[in-house]
Design a protein around this nucleic acid. Sequence first.
DNA 1: ACGAGCGTAGCACCACCGTGCTATAAAGGG
DNA 2: CCCTTTATAGCACGGTGGTGCTACGCTCGT
Lengths: 203, 203
Amino acid sequence: MPKIVVPEERRAAISDAVIRVVRRAGVEGATLRTVADEAGLAIGSVRHYFGSHEDVLIFTMRELGLRIGRRIGTHVDRLLGTDPDIDRRAAVEDLFAEFLPLDPIRWDEAVVWLAFTTAARTRPSLRDTAVEQHAFMRGLITRVLQEATARGALPDRLDLEVECLRLSALLDGLTLQAVLHPENTTPDLLLAALRRSLTALQS
Amino acid sequence: MPKIVVPEERRAAISDAVIRVVRRAGVEGATLRTVADEAGLAIGSVRHYFGSHEDVLIFTMRELGLRIGRRIGTHVDRLLGTDPDIDRRAAVEDLFAEFLPLDPIRWDEAVVWLAFTTAARTRPSLRDTAVEQHAFMRGLITRVLQEATARGALPDRLDLEVECLRLSALLDGLTLQAVLHPENTTPDLLLAALRRSLTALQS
DNA sequence: ACGAGCGTAGCACCACCGTGCTATAAAGGG
DNA sequence: CCCTTTATAGCACGGTGGTGCTACGCTCGT
């Protein structure tokens, strides 16, 4: 049966298993044994595709980061595209809403990403990915704010560095609360908070 | 030498050691051995004061929560006190600023608290404390907003549930970013973001 | 003064971790 | 057809985790 296998697919399947385990038991719960079990493989098979346990985590975190970035990228394309007739306010709202865990799929992703990015504080091998993703988020928000300012959609004496921080902190904070206290942080509340903040920004 | 020891002091000293270890190595790094080492005790001595490793973590998290709550409580007393001549806007700002990691001491506390509260998601024994502290924060913010509305300091058609979420998410998000990406999130930026948000709330 | 009780310390056990290493079976190329 | 390569699987080792249990010494009540 071997040799027909595409290594990339196997790696992806394994990292999916890692994501499920982390969601259930945290990063420290994702041992080679639990991951192999979740993936329906033997521990030796998992090790065949990764140099070490650390590599499994690094690959999975990067994979998850790419997945999130790809999802958000879709909205960026629409917003920064050439179509002049779109409702830009709605497009911006959609873009930022994509950061929020508004459905079970994104909620799971947010849970796992939070686990990884907090774990990265004490795991040097995960830091790079965490920093990259954070820079991506800050850069994206800054660009959107700059563009909106240039367009006259925002007051032009805003301190964009502070506004970027406020917005990214809001998104991170909403996500954090939705992940840790979902019973008090329903999707409709998340959306209401985002809408209110964007509206307040315009005045 | 024994018997002169006050058990509560020993427990407090041990939980201080736990806090230092968690700051350095995360919750999963706080094993009985590392904690005992950090406290300058033998592993058996630590176990004399706690029923289990789990108890050590529970006690320490609760202790840290109380410490944070006590610090914030000081500002609450001042704000809700009877003195009519205080600058209420400044008092509110001071109160909320107390949630932020503006100095090394509070930064350490924020790091450790974040570690505990995220760990609580997968550790049932820590959940209660996490939920309590979160309810405390939400309740406090709601009360302040209600009082400000009653006083006429805020527009009275605000949806306080949404505003409470916005504010608590902002504080949590700012803290999260300061903890995970301190190089991009300096204390003066944190304060600027808070001030801007409070001002925006009033208009 | 002496025994009870508490603080301190550490051994021993089992469970689980990552990893080096080996074994087996299934392809694909010569 | 055989032999190299690759996928899969698993053993065994060293290290480390929490914990049950025991040992020892100091202090204080009687």
